[in-house]
Amino acid sequence: MSETKIIADAELDTLRCLAGHLIPASPRHGVPGADDPAIFADIAGSMDRDASAVREALVVIDGLAGGRLTQADPVRQAQAIARFRDAHPALAAVIESVVARCYYRDARVLASLGVEPRPPFPEGYTVEQGDWSLLDPVRARGPIYRDAG
């Protein structure tokens, strides 16, 4: 059984709400938010070793929202999230990690960044050699090591 199953559906709703606050959609950049159905499905299925910490974070933030984050009004949601990030930076970092590593592999998001939506291998990438003459002054300075045998 996947460790992700330890997170109840209601808690996943909290996570989705949180993900939408973390990375909202941007019509200007033409990208979905992290609460987009496809991206969030990826997040929910990819927590791996962080599932326990995510659940802990969701319990904390629901508590800060006075019940369920999803049932709080927008002002109270924002307050709860701000307090969560301020008082629980390690848990907030886990949320940031699980959201970012799925959001930033979505093909739509990568396309908006000018990144080909493919793994590095097998095509690889091109890197410019650079100007090797930049080393001329370094050579001209001569040896800098201590010749200690």
Binding site: H21, S26, A93, Y103, Y104, V109
Partner: peptide, 26 residues
């Protein structure tokens, strides 16, 4: 990579949650 840029950017306080996230990321 993009995910690591985001994770580190948020940890370093250079990448906000919410409205300013996308501009800062770029």
């Amino acid at each position: 990579g993009p995910a690591r840029t985001a994770i580190n950017g948020m940890a370093d306080g250079l990448l906000p949650w919410g409205e300013g996230h996308h501009d800062a990321f770029r």
